[in-house]
């Protein structure tokens, strides 16, 4: 059973005025079969957490540990982390001009699965996954994310989730920028991924609307670079009505 364990994680970014600490001791364990939601104000460090776990070179881990099934994630390169079973659906997916979506997906699947998928079954698999996410087949020949609308980019992040089938998926604001139909389609994609019960989801969001489609087992409030409160799904509803004032005040006081 997959387990992602984050312990006392401190992360800094380099700025013109030297290193700036953004994560100030994050503790979180995500197990297979669980869905965790992280909610928190802008700039509280949610994306930083997801990038640090994925290994973005801009973010420096100054202390703490991250393990996946006991393996030291921080010692792995970005691609090793992905092959170990971590997946990050990005808040702002990157455009890669001149690299077709189909070439990209196949290269990624080959890397993650350890062998090139058989061409015939692969084509079927991609087509089916695209259809489930209401993605026009023409996208396969377009450059990765280039000129995609915000919603199209998010659908493609979930397409990659479906094809790469990781152990633990971190979804950074996958719901933002989606209209009602797209939100439903994308949520269904995430639920299909969860259905096996062998995968874990860490879902970062500002809004409870996605939590009506994807039911979280745990909700965490993120403020000032750490988790300041954890609870069940009822916590999300409190946040919806009460906002973060209570937490930002508290965080600022520390």
């Amino acid at each position: 059973m997959a387990t992602l364990e984050i312990k006392d994680l401190h992360v800094s970014v380099g700025t013109d005025d030297g290193a700036k600490e953004i994560l100030k001791g994050v503790d979180l364990t995500v197990r297979a079969g669980e869905t965790h939601a992280i909610m928190g104000p802008n700039g509280s460090g949610k994306s930083t957490l997801s990038y640090a776990v994925a290994g973005h070179p801009k973010y420096e881990v100054t202390s703490g540990t991250v393990t996946l099934d006991g393996e030291d994630v921080l010692a792995m390169s970005v691609d090793e982390r992905a092959r170990a079973g971590l997946f990050l659906a990005m808040q702002y997916p990157v455009e890669v001009p001149g690299v077709s979506m189909s070439n990209f997906l196949r290269t990624a699947a080959t890397a993650v699965r350890g062998e090139a998928p058989k061409l015939r079954t692969w084509v079927k698999e991609v087509k089916a996954s695209m259809a489930e996410l209401d993605i026009d087949p023409a996208f396969a020949e377009r450059s990765v994310n280039e000129g995609f609308s915000g919603g199209e980019k998010k659908r493609h992040e979930i397409l990659q989730l479906a094809l790469l089938n990781p152990k633990i998926a971190i979804l950074d604001e996958t719901d933002s920028g989606l209209d009602v139909d797209a939100l439903r389609v994308v949520s269904e994609g995430v639920n299909r991924f969860k259905a096996s019960g062998e995968t874990g989801v860490l879902l970062i969001t500002h809004y409870t609307r996605i939590l009506r489609h994807i039911t979280p087992d745990f909700v965490h409030v993120f403020a000032g670079g750490r988790i300041v409160e954890s609870g069940g799904s009822e916590l999300a509803d409190q946040l919806e009505s009460g906002g973060y004032v209570k937490y930002t005040g508290e965080a600022a006081g520390v």
Partner: peptide, 28 residues
């Protein structure tokens, strides 16, 4: 580096990711 990170975050090893990006640059 953002392109490289994105490709690597999908499991593609760094040298292969670099080649993809450069090939993409010349693609048109």
């Amino acid at each position: 580096d953002e392109q490289l990170f994105y490709l690597q975050a999908r499991g593609i090893p760094e040298d292969q990711a670099r080649r993809l990006v450069v090939r993409g640059f010349f693609h048109e």
